[in-house]
């Protein structure tokens, strides 16, 4: 199995551990990831706020490179990158204006794009290409007894809903159940917003969202929150001290990229999965997994 791989900008900085653990996890599963050559920022939500056609066109530069580089699907780890790239395909298919503008803009830099490169979220690849049964068979260290709150975030399945429900996604729950974990399937915050960039522009609003998420996971008895987006991870993990200070709470909740916890189940060691890069120590999570 082979995929083209788009890490995204955060994977080079605050979300480094997501990239490192993704490569380790996929290595353990025998999936080859070929990094997209000279990829650029997808544009994320900020770019849409300046010029819409520009945002589709710069996202499409990546898709044009992918189409030229290989026949494999493009695997994306960050929710925001995934939505931006998949949305570009969708809007190119739906709107002649977008299609013409993007084609013209790519033409100006000697590139072409048909609009047909499949953009796949890594969880979609794991659950639907490899399959839960095959995954279950490959587990070397089952996550027995570990209570996991799966935090999908907004742009995992909204607005596209291509591989999971936009309101109540379940793929990550099923994935961790296949790995033997006890998943908090009714975690109310699973697809709620972490506040995103608002953490910097309107902190009180974003802190309140993170507080609700942490409280929901904590009250449900979660040992760990797992994330599929670098921004979610950063807010829910990195801002715990600010949440505690603002709301008089005492959260000390381990937060991991889902690839880090999954990597442990497939026999990678914590160092390979960059678990030491987490701010809230995950030692007790690692120790809780039966050898």
């Amino acid at each position: 199995m082979r995929y083209l791989y788009y890490p995204g900008c955060s994977a080079e900085a605050t979300g480094k551990a997501y990239d490192i653990s993704t490569r380790a996890l996929m290595g353990k599963l025998g999936v080859e990831l070929v990094e997209l050559d000279d990829w650029n920022c997808c544009g994320a939500t900020s770019y849409f706020s300046v010029r819409e056609l520009d945002s589709f066109a710069i996202a499409a530069r990546n898709l044009a490179i992918a189409e030229k580089q290989g026949d494999e699907d493009l695997c994306v780890i960050c929710n925001a990158c995934y939505t931006t790239l998949a949305k570009t395909n969708r809007y190119m298919a739906e709107s002649a204006e977008v299609r013409e503008a993007v084609s013209g803009a790519l033409g100006a830099v000697d590139r072409t794009y048909s609009g047909n490169k499949p953009v796949r979220h890594i969880m979609d690849v794991l659950v639907n290409d490899i399959g839960l049964e095959a995954l279950g068979e490959k587990v070397t260290r089952r996550l027995t007894g570990l209570k996991v709150a799966c935090y999908y975030g907004c742009q995992y399945s909204r607005p596209m809903g291509d591989f999971d429900d936009p309101e109540f996604p379940v793929t990550m729950d099923k994935f961790f159940q296949a790995l033997g974990a006890e998943v908090i399937t009714d975690f109310a915050g699973k697809a709620k917003c972490c506040g995103g960039m608002m953490m910097l522009t309107k902190e009180e609003g974003a802190l309140r969202m993170c507080h609700e998420l942490l409280k929901g996971a904590h009250d449900a008895g979660a040992d760990v929150i797992v994330c599929a987006c670098p921004l979610c991870e950063m807010n829910v993990e990195g801002y715990q001290p600010r949440v505690n200070k603002t709301f008089g709470t005492n959260f000390d909740m381990p937060v991991m990229y889902f690839t880090q916890l999954a990597g442990l189940a497939f026999g990678a060691d914590p160092k390979q999965l960059a678990i030491d890069k987490q701010i809230v120590s995950c030692d007790r999570v690692v120790a809780a997994i039966p050898a």
Binding site: Q155, P166, C193, G195
Partner: peptide, 8 residues
């Protein structure tokens, strides 16, 4: 925040 709850 671009959470798309309204849109869906």
């Amino acid at each position: 925040t671009s959470c798309y709850s309204c849109t869906v």
